[in-house]
Write a protein that binds this DNA or RNA. Structure first.
Lengths: 268, 268
DNA sequence: CTTCGGAAG
DNA sequence: CTTCAGAAG
């Protein structure tokens, strides 16, 4: 069994002071994908940069305090790659992947976007470049007998069940028709599956992000944008999914919650 | 008896959350001069902008989040003036004065300065313009039978006894020979006196500012830069001076301490 | 509402 | 070391 967690930490330095360190010490995961680290490795305390018992890969953004993804794994990766070959996003701290036996695991932080701004155009450029990469990644992996898992903050809710008030958000970044269509193509054309949705096809959510504004957390007015996007073979081996919604506002250490899935790699 | 307090609050919004409100509620002062308010009145909670039982005059800086002086008085001022007639500093949030019967009280926040930078040049321009203003202010007041009190953060330590490590600070802004000389001229030429020093001529300090850096507060490694500068007649009526050093690091609500002096206006 | 950077102190 | 503004989320 391989257990993988994805979580947007919204600033690892802040998270580390609020409960992330204790959470990591208590997790049973074998691999942890982090997004929005918002720090260079040298700015992190030793115990956060290189925690005991983990191998850590950090891909900070060139812009200080922005983005940044990491992948922690209990075993040493066979290979590490940062970026996905698109010049514009090479040093943007948005993509890193590691190879483990029979599997490539990636941590992705897709741009958030904001309608009518350059940041939305950037998100669109990222999506345009990332879809063909995903296709090629899966094909190369398949040729080598490997599966692929792209965990992260995709910043897109796919369907109406994936956010609390879909009607009010139809013109908001993260639930635009073109973004939803694009995610549909990741599943329909690139050969991936939405692991948590396949395990829980009927329920609303489970949400993994609640805005810090207003009473979004208390009202469970959230979005399911933190995804395990797996090659179909791997998706079929997912046996359990869990979103660790904090028990209280005081115990939250990010505006996102960890999304954990266990994969039975030995299964047929 | 008229009791006047001067205190640099280092951000009134932050101070209000840490103990300023309780301090104001408990003070016996009749007039309170604030410096480094660092907020527009509209950004302040009602109870801080216009506290019960006080008349508040606010002189914010045009630059948001910078400088800003206020004067609180229990009685309504006969007149209010903001700025001292120098165009460069008119909207800099560094000077405001009110008239009370027989007395003009001002709140001053002199630029901090930093050797070798434009900020030091600005400090020097402020000093050059402010000295003649002080002279004229005292002369006009005298002609009308009034005294003058200019309270505030002067950002200059006059003598060796006015800071902890004077030798190490001889080339630092706030203890430069030209700054010390300028303050000497405020006393010797403009007709004012350093009230707290006259009441306590022999002791070191009492300091009123300790840097947040390092262990300055714990080591009492401070500076006496928050001054009551009074026309000589008024200075002669000062009967008691006190610096309210916080009893603990936890109870500090600014890097400066309130400096309070009681004046016996009825005295000969 | 919160994170982080940078200017200012 | 702390304040605040502003960008980003």
């Amino acid at each position: 069994m391989l257990t993988v967690t994805s979580v947007n930490v919204n600033g690892l330095r802040a998270a580390a002071k609020k409960g992330y360190v204790e959470w990591l010490a208590g997790t049973a995961a074998d691999v942890v994908c982090l997004q929005e680290v918002r720090a260079e490795p040298g700015q992190l305390p030793e115990a956060v940069r290189a925690p005991e018992g983990w191998h850590a890969v950090h891909a900070p953004a060139a812009a200080k305090g922005r983005a940044g993804v990491s992948v922690l794994s209990r075993r040493v990766p066979d290979a590490v790659r940062i970026g996905f070959g698109c010049a514009e996003f090479e040093d943007s701290g948005r993509y890193a992947e590691i190879d483990l036996p029979g599997l490539t695991v990636a941590s992705l932080y897709l741009p958030s976007g904001e309608v009518g701004t350059e940041r939305q155009a950037e998100k669109e450029r990222f999506m345009a470049a990332f879809l063909p990469y995903l296709t090629g990644l899966r094909e190369r992996a398949a040729a080598g007998g490997r599966e692929v898992l792209v965990c992260g903050d995709w910043n897109i809710a796919h369907r109406e069940a994936d956010l609390k008030n879909w009607r009010a958000n139809r013109k908001k970044a993260g639930f635009l028709p073109e973004e939803r269509d694009w995610l549909g193509r990741v599943y329909a054309e690139a050969g991936y599956a939405d692991v948590v949705r396949e395990l829980h096809p009927e329920q609303d959510g489970p949400y993994s992000w609640w805005s810090y504004r207003g009473r979004a957390f208390d009202n469970d007015s959230g979005w399911r944008i933190d995804l395990h996007v797996a090659s179909r073979g791997l998706a079929g081996r997912a046996v359990k999914a869990e979103v660790e919604r904090a028990p209280s506002h005081e115990l939250r250490w990010s505006d996102h919650a960890p999304v954990t899935v266990s994969y039975d790699l030995a299964a047929g």
